[in-house]
Every structure is written in structure tokens, then in C-alpha cells.
């Protein structure tokens, strides 16, 4: 820690600090705002000014004067890289799988009806096939056995997700669902899009107006609003659990890992040399990797860092992602079209 303190801005006059501006996915805002992250970056000569935006909405922004963007997955990153002629490979410092967050009442009902299994009190698996089947048949909570005792469990069963046209997690939700609905094959062309469109539309349209960022969905959940279950990043849950002393709130929290999910590969798109240097630093600097784990992210290349740091949270976190299949993500053109038709 001594090195970090020495590098604090203003004290270390020897290092010229570069101010680097970026647009990031909302779920990384807390990471960049963390005073220890600020210190660690300053120690390496960086001051980062980060603004949040939906990953897919970054494409529509005027990025003049920015050094990097940091969307939440590879597809929007590739699209931005192509637009700004950024040289691949892009730095991908950390990743996080999509998970479903819910309360015990809801999870117990899902489990009793074969839509989920529990590995313990606070951790389990969402059966995507069974869940999509329920969605296809427009199941309501009232139709599921065991729901009648819980007033909040009424109406159509759905997982609240973000707007897939602007936000990454909402788009990845469609990627995972379409992979399952397409018989375990990644959707590749018009025929696949046509085949999966009615189901994806169903998943989205029942939700009405959707949030445009995963952070908003997560905050709604925390403040007791919004419709659980919600689809968020594992990093958000891991980070919440790290900050929170065990309490009645965390006590009533269950993390479901969809048996087919998609990883969100947080990818830096450097727009200049400073942006590239920052991306490399986030990937390689041991302090920053450690801090990324503090915020619940899984650093690329070494699963051990995450496993070691989260050993106090195994009741909630599936550290090794046992039993979780990674669905590949369709190309960004296919994903865009899927999102458009799901919303339309």
C-alpha cells in the first residue's frame, strides 16, 4: 500500500499526470470512483474522468476529446473499434457473467416449479429451457404453485432486463435466450432471427418501459423497487456483498446463475495512445487487478485472483461457474436486428 499512497495526486510531484477521458458502461462507475482506484491510477500517472453510457448507445455519441470508451462487451467494442479504426486486439481487462438476482420468495416458487435449482440457501441455477418455456406460454406467478402466499408474486413471470437496443446486459440476455431457443446454436442469419423473434419479443414486451442501464436495474432492486427477478452482472452482486455486512437485506438475496449465460467482456476501445496505455494498465497492473476483483469483476487470464478474493462469499457466488455454459454471442449485426425486433 505504501507505493499507492506515495503516488497520490499532489504528493508525487515527479510524475506528470495525464488526464484521460472515457465513456464507460454504468456498472464500472463505482470502480472508477473508488478512491483506491483513483490512487492506483495516479501512482501510474493517470487521472481518469469517466462518464457512464449504455454500451450500444456509445456508437451514437460524439467522442471528440475522449481517449477511450469502455463498453461492457466485445460486440459493441468491435463496432466502435471499426468505426474509429482502432487496431485490434483490444484490451479486455476483466469480465463478468450475467446472473439473475431475486429474493427467497420468488426463488422458492421457481424451484418448486422446476424453473430453478438451489445449491444452497443463497445460490442456485436458473433452468433457461424451462424458464423460456414458461415465458413462451405467458405463465403468470399465480399459475405457479406456491406463489399464492406472496402478494408481490403476481402478474406475468419475467426477468427484468435493460433495453437491448442501448444497453449491453439486455442485448446479452437476448444472446443467451436465442442460443437456447435455437437448439444450442448461435443465431447466425435471417432464418435464426425469424425463428427466435417471437420468443424474444415476448421476453421484452411484457416488461413495458425498460431501464437503459444495468446500474439502474440493480439500484431499483436495492431500493426495493422494480420487478425481481432482475438480470444484472455478477460483478454488481459480488461488490454489493463485499461492501455489505451480513444483514436482513443480504440475507434475502439469492443469486441464480442461468445454466446458459453470456459473459460480459469489459473491453477498452482506445481512441488514442493514452487510452491504449490505460487499457494495458488495467489489464496488467496487479493493484488494479486486485481492485477490479474488489468491485466484483473477474480479471482475464487468472481465475485464482477472483476465487481467492471472494472466498467469504461462496454462499452466493458460483466461483468456478460450475454447471454454467457460456453461449457465444451473435455478430453485432445479428444482435442489433434481434434487439430491434424484440422491442418493436
Amino acid at each position: 500500500m505504501a507505493a499507492v499512497v506515495a503516488g497520490r495526486q499532489g504528493e508525487d510531484k515527479g510524475t506528470a499526470t495525464k488526464t484521460v477521458r472515457g465513456v464507460i458502461g454504468s456498472e464500472k462507475a463505482d470502480f472508477f470512483a473508488d478512491p483506491d482506484v483513483v490512487k492506483a491510477l495516479a501512482a501510474k500517472g493517470f487521472t481518469v474522468k469517466a462518464e457512464a453510457s449504455g454500451s450500444w448507445a456509445m456508437d451514437g455519441l460524439d467522442l471528440k476529446g475522449y481517449d477511450f470508451t469502455f463498453p461492457s462487451s466485445k460486440a459493441p467494442a468491435d463496432q466502435l473499434a471499426a468505426k474509429y479504426h482502432v487496431q485490434e486486439p483490444l484490451p479486455r481487462p476483466f469480465y463478468s457473467p450475467l446472473v439473475v438476482l431475486a429474493h427467497h420468495n420468488a426463488v422458492d416458487v421457481l424451484a418448486a416449479n422446476g424453473l430453478a435449482t438451489l445449491d444452497g440457501k443463497s445460490r442456485g441455477t436458473l433452468k433457461m429451457g424451462a424458464y423460456l418455456d414458461a415465458a413462451r406460454h405467458n405463465r403468470t406467478w399465480q399459475q405457479l404453485k406456491g406463489a399464492s402466499g406472496h402478494g408481490e408474486l403476481t402478474g406475468t413471470l419475467y426477468i427484468a432486463s435493460t433495453d437491448p437496443e442501448t444497453s449491453n446486459s439486455g442485448a446479452l440476455y437476448l444472446a443467451a435466450a436465442s442460443y437456447v431457443a435455437n437448439g444450442g446454436k448461435v443465431a447466425a442469419g435471417k432464418a435464426d432471427i425469424d425463428r427466435t423473434a417471437p420468443l424474444l419479443h415476448q421476453l421484452v414486451s411484457v416488461q413495458g418501459a425498460q431501464q437503459s442501464s444495468t446500474d439502474a436495474v440493480f439500484r431499483d432492486f436495492i431500493s426495493g423497487a422494480g420487478n425481481p427477478p432482475v438480470l444484472v452482472y455478477e460483478s454488481q452482486v459480488a461488490s454489493l456483498l463485499a461492501e455489505q455486512q451480513p444483514s436482513s437485506d443480504t440475507d434475502d438475496l439469492v443469486v441464480l446463475y442461468p445454466d446458459t449465460t453470456v459473459n460480459s467482456d469489459h473491453t477498452v476501445v482506445p481512441l488514442d495512445a493514452n487510452g491504449r496505455a490505460l487499457g494495458e494498465l488495467l489489464s496488467t497492473d496487479p493493484t488494479l487487478r486486485k481492485l477490479a476483483v474488489r468491485h466484483g469483476f473477474r480479471p482475464q487470464g487468472d481465475a485464482g485472483e477472483f476465487v481467492a478474493a471472494t472466498k467469504d462469499r461462496t454462499a452466493y457466488l458460483n466461483q468456478k461457474l460450475t454447471g454454467v455454459r457460456q453461449a457465444p454471442v451473435p455478430t453485432s449485426a445479428v444482435l442489433h436486428e434481434m434487439a430491434r425486433r424484440a422491442r418493436g
Binding site: 429474493h103 420468495n105 406472496h150 402478494g151 408481490e152 408474486l153 403476481t154 402478474g155 414486451s205 411484457v206 416488461q207 413495458g208 418501459a209 425498460q210 431499483d220 426495493g224 423497487a225 422494480g226 420487478n227
Partner: peptide, 10 residues
């Protein structure tokens, strides 16, 4: 105590 969140029109 929990309440169902009614969806806002889409």
C-alpha cells in the same frame, strides 16, 4: 415489505 412493481407502458 415487498410490492409488485407494475410495468410502465412500453
Amino acid at each position: 415489505s415487498r410490492r409488485r412493481e407494475l410495468p410502465f407502458p412500453g
